[in-house]
Design a protein around this nucleic acid. Structure first.
Length: 502
DNA sequence: GCGATCAGCT
DNA sequence: CACAGCTGATCGC
């Protein structure tokens, strides 16, 4: 209890109940609903809030990892030249006899010597401090942003903060999607779940903090788009068990964007952790051999839509709907330009389906063509073309799916196209009234531009999350999204308890 | 001039 | 709201 009491000293909170590590405070006030007891150094919770579930893990987390002998550091089953890793190895410390709090970067604030700040620009720091008596500072005087939402942490606003606890895998020298915290003490392998900016943020050609593990497709994108030194990148094939730093690791298809993986860790003592990265749970996952043969003890869960109001159709249904609308629109108005909005990667199956339904190619700009070609998907590569005039199906950045921008875009093609039919595929296109009934979706129209928001989600719906969790029956769930708000955390935790009731 | 970071915005 | 970014300003090299 002492450690946690110390943590509350000073004005260091960055959110009502999370410290700057994204770690929940213990409520200590008398009116607090939670109660805690200390038993042989571990903290046990008596009630059922997020914090209590969180601290009261019921597992002895101390003594997480023995000091390593001089045994081979990397024992991947697949042949790779690891010699590059020797460089800078002296920087990497081994994890020896640490408790859970240390493991997760939760340490007593002892002063600058304990702060792993890689020389933040002093002037910037000063500048940010100027405007705000109400601004919140950490012990070093840096203004630390409020963690209103997970996104803030993912985007590493106020970078060089300590890595949040939920990005570290206890009992291993691993982190997941933690590239924007500089060198993380004790981390000997940095896992990347998928190639979206809010997860790879911090990776650049100057990356030198340690080896990066990801799927082969993600590896290609990291090299191609971010120019990361290939010597740091270690692709792991899906559905193949590797041994990394003595831990068994398997990448599973995440049903998110191309290359996205669930990461399964199997420790020497038999404990299993599953980190979902971002994913859309589906029945197929429940037949994966590794999930059937080894029960997951701790689940790091993508809780983006962990709220019963999020009910959206399957991707297949949405794709079918989009194809139907497209066909009927083109039958009535043959000179229609069909536009699909997309971020860097993801949502490919929406335009692949339209391409199939209409029997047309897919046009997009050179930078996206390069990325899509790198997937190595024959059914996609063969359909991509570099001339807008040659096909009525175009893929544009989702940010340009506004009526004015699309009218401008249409003008470029003169008489060839006279109207635009656009689709904005996102989970946020759900509506409580519409729910699963796609036929109720109405487009927004302005002049000759029609835009459909379609609930094509690459994250699990509430019921998909429930089904997945009830299949896994983990001992413990650590949400990784929407954790910046105490009310959200408690709500999610109460869903988890409901789902896992015996 | 280039790349990285950050506030603000959708 | 915020999926997963983008834009523009600023700073260091």
């Amino acid at each position: 209890m002492e450690i946690l009491t110390d943590e509350r000293e000073g004005d260091i909170s960055i959110s009502e109940n999370l410290d700057e590590n994204g770690f929940p405070f213990l409520p200590l006030s008398p009116e607090s609903e939670s109660r805690y007891e200390e038993t042989d150094g571990s903290i046990l919770a008596v009630d059922g809030s997020f914090v209590s579930d969180f601290y009261g893990s019921g597992t002895d987390w101390s003594c997480l990892r023995e000091g390593e002998s001089d045994q081979k550091k990397l024992e991947l089953e697949r042949g790779t030249d690891w010699s590059c890793l020797k460089e800078g190895e002296s920087d990497r410390k081994k994890l020896v006899q640490r408790d859970l709090f240390q493991m997760w970067g939760f340490k007593k604030r002892g002063g600058p010597s304990e702060c792993r700040v890689s020389s933040p620009p002093a002037m910037k720091r000063e500048k940010r401090r100027i405007n705000g008596h109400d601004s919140i500072s950490d012990w070093a005087g840096r203004k630390v942003p409020r963690l209103g939402k997970e996104k803030t942490a993912e985007h590493c606003v106020g970078a060089r903060r300590a890595c949040p606890f939920y990005k570290k895998i206890p009992g291993t020298p691993f982190t997941v999607d933690a590239f924007c915290y500089g060198l993380i003490e004790g981390c000997e392998a940095y896992f990347l779940s998928h190639f979206h900016h809010d997860h790879y943020g911090g990776l650049s050609k100057r990356w030198s903090h340690g080896p990066i593990y990801c799927t082969p497709l993600t590896a290609r994108l990291v090299k191609m788009c971010l120019s990361v030194n290939p010597l740091f990148i270690h692709p792991l094939e899906l559905d193949t068990e590797y041994v990394v730093e003595g831990i068994k690791v398997t990448m599973l298809e995440a049903n998110h964007c191309p290359g996205a993986a669930l990461i399964h860790f199997r420790l020497g003592d038999g404990r299993c952790y599953l980190h979902t990265g971002d994913f859309r749970a589906c029945k197929l996952m429940q037949s994966h051999p590794i999930l059937l043969s080894h029960r997951v003890n701790v689940l790091y869960l993508d809780t983006t839509y962990c709220n019963p109001k999020y009910r959206f159709p399957s991707k297949e249904d949405v794709v079918g709907f989009v194809a139907r609308i497209t066909k009927s629109t083109l039958a009535k108005q043959p000179k229609t330009l069909v536009v699909v909005g997309a971020y860097s990667i993801g949502k490919e199956h929406v335009y692949i389906a339209i391409s199939k339904a209409l029997g047309v190619n897919i046009y997009t700009d050179a930078s996206r063509r390069r990325i899509l070609q790198s997937f190595g998907w024959p059914e996609l590569s063969g359909k991509i073309c570099s001339l807008g005039q040659s096909t009525p199906l175009h893929v544009l950045p989702i940010s340009s799916l506004r009526p004015e921008s699309l009218q401008q875009y249409l003008k470029k093609y003169g008489e060839q196209f006279t109207a635009v039919l656009a689709f904005r595929p996102t989970g946020w296109s759900y509506s409580e009234a519409i729910g699963n009934q796609l036929d109720l979706i109405r487009p927004s129209s302005k002049g000759n531009v029609k835009i459909y928001g379609v609930p094509y989600s690459e994250h699990s719906s509430f019921l998909e999350l429930r089904d997945f969790v009830q299949f896994l029956k983990p001992d413990k769930i650590i949400p990784t999204v929407n954790v910046g708000n105490a009310a959200n955390r408690d709500k999610m935790q109460s869903h988890f308890r409901e789902w896992l009731k015996t």
